[in-house]
C-alpha cells in the first residue's frame, strides 16, 4: 500500500545567479526527474528561479531540538569570534 504513494521531496531554488539555493518547500514525485519537473511547475511559475535542487525528504538528517542546548548554546559566549570583542582606538581607520 505504502509503495503506491509518491514520496516527499524537498525543493531548493536559486532565485538568481550569485545567490545560494534556498529551501522553497516540498512536493510529491515518483522519482528525481519528476520532482525536478514538478518543482519547476509548482515553485517557479512566477519566474522565481534559475536553478533547482531536489532531495528526497527521507535523506535529510536533521539535528534534534532536544540537543539544542549542547549543540548551539556553547557558541553564545564565544564573544572573541566577533570583531567587537577587540579594542582598537577610534583614530585607526580601515579596520
Amino acid at each position: 500500500m505504502a509503495t503506491k504513494n509518491w514520496p516527499l521531496w524537498e525543493i531548493f531554488v536559486r532565485s538568481k545567479n550569485g545567490l545560494e539555493h534556498r529551501h522553497f518547500g516540498s512536493l510529491h514525485a515518483a522519482d528525481a526527474e519528476m520532482a525536478l519537473e514538478n518543482a519547476r511547475d509548482v515553485y517557479t511559475r512566477r519566474n522565481e528561479g534559475v536553478s533547482i535542487w531536489v532531495v528526497e525528504s527521507k535523506h535529510i538528517t536533521a539535528s534534534n531540538p532536544e540537543n539544542n542546548g549542547e549543540l548551539f548554546e556553547p557558541a553564545q559566549d564565544k564573544v572573541y569570534r566577533h570583531p567587537t570583542f577587540y579594542d582598537v582606538p577610534d583614530e585607526v581607520k580601515h579596520m
Binding site: 509518491w6 512536493l27 510529491h28 514525485a29 519528476m34 519537473e37 514538478n38 511547475d41 509548482v42 511559475r45
Partner: peptide, 11 residues
Amino acid sequence: PNLETDIACTN
C-alpha cells in the same frame, strides 16, 4: 490524478 500533475497540465 494529483496536484502536481494538475498544475503541470495547466501550465
